[in-house]
Nucleic acid binder design. Structure first.
Lengths: 167, 167
DNA sequence: TTTTATTTTCAGTAATTATTGAAAGTTTAG
DNA sequence: CTAAACTTTCAATAATTACTGAAAATAAAA
């Protein structure tokens, strides 16, 4: 397979994976493009490579920066902004998880906590409801906590420990 | 908060969470409805509770069954089909992960493996590309493997071990 | 068998989400 | 300062995804 072809396929796959997981396809594609680019790219480069509009490129680049997956890079003597992606894949994973945890998991944990506060906790139906919600809340809380701890830990420590654990 | 209100809020939250993660909102809502229902529900019940059409209810119930999150339940002397959700939240998590792994993670792992097969592996650009893809592939493979192992393990074993590990 | 209850399918439509492109805003150079 | 280079915004539009509802299929009862 030719290199260009391979890059394109990688970009498409990453984009598809993203959209299956609720992440804007173009955002994922730009991320992929920068991940396999050996040099910083400008907005123009992104527009050209992915055939997207300036507005689209700009918005998704900003979003990637807000996720801390991409950084601006200034090239001396050039007025344009250039962009590079974080290449350490463990960092990438941590930052994606951190972002989604913050924006999507934590709010629902707060809601689940509140929901256990129903009137008439004595009625069998209410009891059942509270039990279900409590289970989910506790489970999610444990998961959240585990992820939190793993995120803070170092890669080698994590893999070393987890693989020993997992035989 | 009133019980009905709480149930509705739970259903809405679950639905929103689902759609943020690329799962059809109605499917997630039906799942939520069944999760907090103390008795089996018919298609009619689901249509009524969530104000959705018969077609929509039917399709999403089938999808939930294919994910193994919901089961049919027959009530003797009644021709209608009734549905119940798996209530053990650890089982629920395992089944969701299993399904998404199979449908979305494994295909991309295969692709990443192939992509390392580019022409002219000697060129610096190709070398860089292969290195990036290889990193991602290895990382994803490790994650996949870990999840696989956890999925097979028992809940108590998992939490016992992971919490000991995580201090 | 025919009738009736129930489930499934899917073309058409609606709702949601993403994208464009041009105007407004900002920054730097001269 | 003004002009040019570049970035951002956002209303209009396109693309995608989800939903409806009625017809067709299936299954049970009569």
């Amino acid at each position: 397979m030719k290199l260009q072809e391979a890059k394109t396929q990688f970009i498409n796959s990453w984009g598809r994976l993203g959209s299956e997981w609720g992440i804007n396809r173009t955002m994922a594609q730009i991320h992929a493009l920068l991940l396999v680019s050996d040099k910083p790219l400008s907005t123009e480069d992104v527009m050209q490579e992915l055939s997207v509009s300036r507005g689209n490129a700009n918005m998704n680049l900003r979003e990637l920066i807000s996720w801390d997956l991409v950084q601006k890079e200034l090239i001396p003597g050039d007025r344009k902004e250039y962009f590079v992606a974080e290449k350490d894949i463990w960092e990438v994973a941590k930052r994606i998880v951190r972002e989604r945890k913050r924006k999507e998991i934590e709010p629902i944990l707060r809601e689940l906590k509140q929901l256990q506060d129903v009137d008439d906790k004595k009625s069998p139906e209410a009891k059942e409801f509270v039990k279900s919600v409590k289970n989910i809340h506790e489970f999610a809380g444990k998961m959240d906590k585990s992820i939190e701890t793993m995120m803070k830990a170092d890669e080698n420590w994590f893999f070393g420990a987890i693989f020993k654990l997992l035989k």
